[in-house]
Amino acid sequence: MNWLSELQIDGLTEVFNIGAGRAAASLSEIVCDEVQLSVPRLQLYNSSEINAATLTLNSLRLGAVKQRFSGPFSADAMLLFTEERALEIVHDMMGSQVSIEDVAEFEQEAMCELGNIILNACLSSIANLLNLTLESSLPSYTIGDTDGVLRGIISDANQPLMLVLHIDLSIENRHSQGLLVFLLSTSSLQKLVSHIDRFISGI
């Protein structure tokens, strides 16, 4: 965690909070209800330290929406949700006329869209505040057992660093937690940090 100073973490968290605020506004239009979305915590890990316990993911299965983005620095951005929660969220988004059993067949697509909204809001917030241009791939969704999904995430030796944002999402009276994970190479992290420094020193 020595990679980032307290001020840098504060700056980054604020950038992501603004992104989360935008995402919440888009989601609330879909569900026609208030959506709470906040980023209370940001942590940096070496991917070798990562497992379900360090990420406090106590679920057997995980859904992951992934977008690969590039620009002055590149990273894989991913949104992780526990599977049962993911289904509940999709259910809320689709409205109560659809039964929870039927939701499963739409899960893949709907999660892609949900992840896309949240990831884009965060990416565009980074791009705006740090004044840079980012390009991104379309989102893809994978689902599997927690250990398998995490192994898949950390297997990329070129991107050994993980910037992890803990996300709180509540729709109506459902509360759910997800993780926003950015997989970065050492050099990409350095570039990100230098952009944050430039942003902070410009204040």
């Binding site: 977008q67 739409f106 697509e109 709907a110 990416l123 791939s137 379309l138």
Partner: peptide, 12 residues
């Protein structure tokens, strides 16, 4: 505006 790709799922 944001130069980022967007998906609209059939589900929603």
């Amino acid at each position: 505006l944001h130069k980022l790709p967007i998906v609209l799922s059939n589900a929603l």
